[in-house]
Write a protein that binds this DNA or RNA. Structure first.
Lengths: 195, 195
DNA sequence: ATTCGACTATTTATGTTTTTTAGTCGGTTG
DNA sequence: CAACCGACTAAAAAACATAAATAGTCGAAT
């Protein structure tokens, strides 16, 4: 069989853990609880995962993977640079806010807590890489000439920082995530140079 | 005389407090220290200010006032909308980072601590109002037609949130505040519609 | 009206104990 | 022998108590 017994149990644990993390968060979910939810002893979990962090990591990666898939679908549909970046930002954040664990990481990160930092940095890094690639494609195809290629690294970081600022504000002010506003914001941030 | 004795002493206290806040921050500066710096007893301070918070408030307002003045000078020099907004953002943040107390509030705010919140909100509110006014002027003069007037409130909030996101990133990543980059960022955020 | 010193009421820091929880280990079972 | 368990340990977190620092009050003095 393609999916081994090992993978199956691992997945079972992850699903249960995911459910608990969603309800209680990382800190308030204990390994005993996860074990109980799986109908196993705690020590058994350590047969599949080295540590609690590794379990959480795996859950987050599960969600990031599915998020990336969703984003890719939307971005690939678009044909020009501006639409791609716009689609990227809108989809990314729509999808992220649908995934409570990720949302938590971002929200925790806003309040700068130790644990979220790593995941957030990874997220930021991923966003930067993704945007950089889109920009580079635009450059190579000659679609985009306004900035030097050397600026792409800085450019994508700034784009993301700005966009994250808006999302942050939406979260903090409890104004919720309004897709229409999000689109407007994205449209405003993405420099018209791109069009 | 125009400046009353009362105001003179108040100012003396504020100057001393400002110096101490700059060195030690709000929490690590005691009322006893401020009093000692003024060569007065602590209880005397309470004759001029209701509480320690009121002293800090007054200091912050002192700095905000001088900052506003500096910003206004730069903005007023510009003739068109885009330049005004650009000048506003660049000057505002340049000046803010020169004022350690304000900088502290902003930085504290990044780590969301109770005390900074109020000041930060006030700052945010001020920035919003200021930008709104600039935008409205642009509308009224017919310089700007792309957005509806109703959108100005949302527009200025978004602009500020985005810009704050970039500043935040600069602070967090310890990349420092590079004016050239700041200008680039501002240029990128301010939609080309304005030009 | 200003100032002060002595006082109180809160916060904050410190140290101690208890409880909770992550992670280990030897042994059991299918 | 891979998957599991229960009992154990070590480390972290929570709870508690105590001491110290500090914000803020008040009556008296100038």
């Amino acid at each position: 069989m393609v999916v081994s017994k090992d993978d199956k149990v691992k997945n079972e644990i992850l699903i249960k853990a995911q459910g608990l993390f969603q309800i209680y968060g990382l800190k308030k979910t204990t390994m005993d609880e996860i074990a109980a939810a799986c109908g196993k002893a705690k020590s058994t979990l350590y047969h599949y995962f080295k540590s609690k962090d590794e379990v959480f990591d795996a859950v987050i990666n599960l969600e990031i993977t599915s998020l990336r898939k969703a984003v890719k679908v939307n971005v690939d549909q678009k044909t020009n640079l501006t639409d791609k970046i716009l689609a990227y930002f809108v989809t990314f954040h729509e999808e992220a806010f649908q995934r409570i664990n990720l949302y938590r990481v971002v929200k925790q990160e806003i309040k700068i807590e130790a644990i979220g930092q790593l995941h957030f940095n990874k997220l930021f890094e991923f966003e930067k890489e993704y945007i950089s690639r889109i920009l580079e494609d635009g450059f190579d195809s000659g679609e985009y000439t306004e900035f030097a290629k050397d600026d792409i690294g800085w450019l994508s970081k700034t784009l993301i920082a700005a966009f994250l600022g808006i999302v942050r504000y939406m979260v903090e002010s409890d104004e919720g995530i309004d897709t229409v506003k999000l689109k407007k914001a994205a449209n405003m941030i993405i420099p018209k140079i791109f069009t």
